[in-house]
Design a protein around this nucleic acid. Sequence first.
DNA 1: TTTTGCACTCATTACAGGAGAGTGCTAAAT
DNA 2: ATTTAGCACTCTCCTGTAATGAGTGCAAAA
Lengths: 353, 353
Amino acid sequence: MVSATDSSQLSERSLYLFKALVEHFIEDGTPVGSRTLSKDANLNLSPASIRNVMADLEDLGLLHSPHTSAGRVPTAKGYRLFVDSLLRVNDLKSSEVEKIAREMAPENDYTSLMQRTSSMLSNITHLAGVVMLPRNTQSRLKHIEFVSLSANRVLVVLVVNDREVQNRIINTGKTYTSAELQRVSNYLNEIFAGKDLITVRASILDELEKMKEEVNQSMQSAIEMAQMAFNNDESTSKGDELLFSGQTNLMDVAELCDVDKLKKLFETFNQKRDILHLLEQAINADGMQIFIGEESGYDVLDNCSVVTSPYEVDGEILGVLGVIGPTRMHYERVIPIVDITAKMLGVALNFKN
Amino acid sequence: MVSATDSSQLSERSLYLFKALVEHFIEDGTPVGSRTLSKDANLNLSPASIRNVMADLEDLGLLHSPHTSAGRVPTAKGYRLFVDSLLRVNDLKSSEVEKIAREMAPENDYTSLMQRTSSMLSNITHLAGVVMLPRNTQSRLKHIEFVSLSANRVLVVLVVNDREVQNRIINTGKTYTSAELQRVSNYLNEIFAGKDLITVRASILDELEKMKEEVNQSMQSAIEMAQMAFNNDESTSKGDELLFSGQTNLMDVAELCDVDKLKKLFETFNQKRDILHLLEQAINADGMQIFIGEESGYDVLDNCSVVTSPYEVDGEILGVLGVIGPTRMHYERVIPIVDITAKMLGVALNFKN
DNA sequence: TTTTGCACTCATTACAGGAGAGTGCTAAAT
DNA sequence: ATTTAGCACTCTCCTGTAATGAGTGCAAAA
C-alpha cells in the first residue's frame, strides 16, 4: 500500500506543526487544539493560522476531530507519517542499555531466556511484550534419544538446533530393553543427525520402503519408532510459539480502558493465532516493522500499535519479538528498545553454540 | 475459625427465606428486597414480616445492605452458611459428564492433559480454571539420561514419576563422549533410580565424600554431573506449577467489571504466588475446599470464591485443581463439576502407568 | 405474631442551564 | 497574499434540581 501522502507534499511549517501536535498528543492523551499548539510550538503563530493548517492536515487524512469542539488527534495515517518521516529516535541512556544487557545474559535454559526477554520488554516499556519462538521449519535435528518409561511406552528426546529440547512419548507395539533402544538411537542418529526436520520426516518414508526388502528386524522397528516420534510434530509444536508478558500493563492505558475491548484484546492474545499471523508478516520484511492501528488488519488492534523486530543468529532470522501498546505510545523510546533487544537476543543465542 | 452461626440457631422459616434470598441473588445479581422475596418464596408472608426476618439475618452478619434503600445481599459468612448447610448440589446431566470425560481422555503428553483439564474447567463453568501440577516434593526419579550437546554442554533428561519429563542443560568442565555419558547414566540410574528427588540430592553429597577416597575417576565425574543436574532444581521447577485458563471469562462478571480490580486480579494470576499459597492450603484439607470472598485472606479475592478439589492416584494426593469466580456463582453447578473433574483427572493419570 | 400504614432514605434518572474549549468563517490588518 | 482578530456556533462536561421508585424501619392495628 503506497500512501499518497508523503512529507514532501507538505510545507515545512505544516510538518513542524503536525509533529508538534503528535508529540503533544502522545504526551497528554487529550485532543490538542489550536490555542495549545500556538503556545507549544515556538513559531509565533496565532491560533487562527494554526487552525487553517490543521484543516488542511485533516483534509489529507492525517488528523481527525472526535467532535466539533474538541482538538485534533492523529489518525493511523498520521502516525504513519510521523514515525516514517518525522520521528527522531532517541539513543537509549546507557543505564537502560545496561539494564537490558543484564536481563539478557546468556543462560543454558533456552525457554527461560525467551521468557525473560519477553518480561523485560514489557517491564521496560510498561506495555505488553511478545516473543515468537524460532520457527521449527528450519530446525536441524542434532540428536535423538530413546528412554524406556514402562511397558510399551517410550520417551523420545529430540535436540534441535543445539538449543531446543523437545520431549514426546510414544506407545510402541512391544517393550524394548534399554540396550535395544540404545541401538535404535545410534542408528537413527547416524542417518538423521544434522538434517532438517522436514527432510527427516520425508526420508523416513523412503527408508520404510527400503526396509521392506531387507530383513533386519531391529532397524525396521527403529524406523517405525522414528515415524511415530516425528508424526505428531505438528500437534506438539503448535500453539506454544508465542510468549506474552505484561498484558496487564495495557489495562492502565486510557484508550483501552473499556472492559469489553480489553476482553477481546486478551482473548486475541490467548488464542495467539491472529498475533502469530501478524508476526509472520513481520518476519519476512527485513528489519523493524511497525503496525499502526487499523493497518494490522485486525479489528481488536484498532487502537494498538505493534513494534517488531526480527532476531537472528549468523545472519539467519530465527524469529520476531516486539511490543504491543496503544497507538499513542512513545515510539521514540519503544523503537530503539525493541531494536536493541532483538540484537541482544541474537547475541545471547549465539553465545550458546 | 469456628463460626458462631450455624443453621441450628435459626428457625426453619428464617433459613428457608435466607436460602431463597441467596438463590435469587445468585440468579439476578441485584440486591433483593422484601417485596420480591414475598412473591418469590411461596410462604404466604407479607413484605413486612420478611423485613423483620431479614433484619435478624443482618444482625447475625449473614446479610448486608449496600445502602438504606437497596435490598439485601449475602455476606461471605452468609455464603458460607449457604454452601455448608443449605445448598443442595445438583447431579450433573449425563451429557455434561460425557463432555468432561471426552476432554479428559488419557493421553501421552502429560502437560497437555493438564492444560486441557484447565481449559475444560473454564469452558464448562464460564469462569477461570486452574490446575496445580503435582508437587515434586514427593517425586521419584525414574530415569536419568545424558546427551552431549556441544563442547562442555550436556543435556540432562530426568524422568520423574513415570509421567513427567524435565530437561536441563549443564556446563561441564570437560567434554564427554557419548560412550562416557552412557556409562555415567548407567551408573547413576543404578544407584538413584526409584528414589525420591530429595533423597537423591541428599545422598549425592554423601557419595561425593565417599568418592574422595576412591580413585575411580569416571564415577567421580558422574557424581559431579549429578550434583549439577540436581542443583538448580528449585529454579527450574518454580513458577510453572499453575496452569490457568479462561481468565477472560471473569471480565464479563459484573462485580469485577471495574478495570482497576481486574488488573489487580490478573496480576495476582500472573504472579501465581498468592494463588499457589491458597491452593497449598486446599491440598492439605481432605476433599473439596471452598474459599469464599474475604475468607481466602487475599484482598484481591474479596469478591471471588475459589472452589477446589485435590486429585489423586492410588490414594496419593498429587495436586489440586479448581475454579475461580465471583462469590455470586452457581455453586450447585460448579461444585460437582470440580469434584468430578478431579476424579477423572486421577483416572486419566492412573491410566498411563 | 403478623400485617398495615406511613414517613423516611437513598440511588438513579432526566432535564436545564452555564462554563469552557475549540471550530469555521469573514473581514480587517500586515 | 498571509496572517490575524472577531464572532457566532457547536459540542462536551459539570452542576444543580426535581421527580421517581425501590426499599427500609417503626408503630399501631389485626
